[in-house]
Amino acid sequence: MQAARFHGPGDIRVESTPKPELDSSKGAIIRVTHTAICGSDLWFYRGESDRDVPSNVGHEPMGIVEEVGEDVVSVDRGDRVFAPFFISCGRCEYCRKGLHTSCVNNDSWSGPNGGAQGEYVRCPEADGTLLRVPDRHADDEDTLRSLLPLTDVMATGHHAAVSAGVDTGSTCAVVGDGAVGLCGVLAAQRLGAERIIAIGHHEDRLEIADEFGATDLVSERGEAAVQRVNELTNGGVNHVLECVGATSSMETAHQVCRPGGTVGYVGVPHGMGDGLDLSPFFRGNITLNGGVAPVRAYAEELMADVLQGTLDPSPIFTKTVDLDGVPEGYEAMDSREAVKVLVTL
């Protein structure tokens, strides 16, 4: 099969690689029809995190089930499915608690499972991972584009909002204007927030935040951004969604958070080599809550809203490529020319 592979910083190539084979009675093989490039993919692309060379890449798969193991009960051949960025069993202690990202049988989409930015993937735990798209929506391209962000960024933005305690009538701030931050705005709007302050540096992305329900847009940087939020809110907000993962964004989060408030953090940590000073959180009795999003725990409720037409995160896809265009897609995201790249096969 053809798949995108990492050959070192700045070097993504589409080339032949072995097609994954079914090796478990609980597994499935999926022919990928839609996938995406994630902001977290940029860390190995930029050489800022380690990754095997060469290795298949991608972790946001949607496609058609081609083979299923004899013990699989939730999906069958021909079904349209999508899947979270982590593979989970659905049976263990942590899956039963809704913490699928801590599954004792977890697995990734790379390595022998094929990499989601390729023609096929293997899911070793089909029942605990895959979500079936109802037949009446299975070939609706607009719906599929809206569902694909549920594999990662929409559910991650939702996790930030839930972790921050956003509910009806809340005033909140979202730190970051990447795909996760924009989905955090959409999630806060969905949960009933009355006021949503989007903090970012790119006018085109803040326009999407406005479309998603942000009531205030803050484009200033650093201390100026903090000052602007505090002016808008007379001293900060009780709920902050941190959607970047850098020391600077965490500092901004606590600086705009009122004493006794909560920061929901979901940004993949990077650039924290000198450590994060927790003293301000301690002194302000600010709760720090969040982590890697258990997408499988949220995906069904989010899918229900997409299917009834009340949730549409698809505007985060500002560029579409085919499989051969994946290297171009990485370049576009690395240069901030695209918010998130949709890949159609």
Rank of each mutant, 00 (worst) to 15 (best):
C172I: 02
G284K: 09
Y330M: 05
V326M: 05
F317A: 08
G192H: 09
P112F: 12
A224R: 13
S170A: 15
T171W: 10
E93D: 13
A155E: 04
D216V: 13
D107G: 06
G90Q: 10
R205L: 02
G329S: 06
S40G: 02
L42A: 12
S170T: 13
F317Q: 03
V65K: 04
R31E: 13
F281C: 02
L342S: 12
R46L: 11
G235W: 10
T143L: 11
D312K: 07
G275I: 11
D204N: 09
S25V: 11
G181L: 00
T129H: 07
Q2A: 12
L323D: 01
M154V: 04
H239Y: 07
C95D: 02
H7M: 07
C123A: 12
R336T: 08
P327Y: 01
E301W: 08
H159W: 12
G90A: 04
G192W: 13
P18L: 05
G98V: 02
D23A: 15
D139W: 06
F86V: 15
G181W: 03
V292W: 11
I12W: 07
G178L: 00
G115N: 12
V237H: 01
G275D: 07
R258E: 15
E67D: 06
V53Q: 05
S49A: 15
K340I: 02
A198H: 02
A164F: 04
E48C: 14
L150P: 06
A3P: 07
D152G: 05
E337V: 00
G90Y: 07
V162H: 05
S279C: 01
Q117V: 09
H59M: 09
G200F: 09
Q255D: 06
Y120W: 14
N113T: 04
V174Q: 07
V240D: 04
L342R: 12
G39T: 03
M1F: 08
G63C: 03
T168N: 14
G309P: 07
D216N: 09
T215E: 00
G165K: 05
G90C: 03
I208Q: 10
T35Y: 00
A28G: 14
V65A: 02
A224E: 15
R77W: 06
V121Y: 05
P124Y: 11
V266I: 09
I64L: 04
F44H: 14
C172T: 08
L131T: 15
L130M: 05
R336E: 14
P61Y: 09
Q255P: 00
A253Y: 03
G90H: 06
H7Y: 15
P294L: 01
V162A: 11
G78D: 11
T129C: 12
T344Q: 14
G176H: 06
E223C: 02
G291V: 08
E220L: 01
R296A: 07
W109N: 05
S24W: 04
D324T: 14
S219P: 02
D11I: 14
A138W: 05
R258N: 13
R80P: 03
D52N: 15
A188G: 10
A297D: 10
L232E: 12
A224T: 11
P20N: 05
C103E: 02
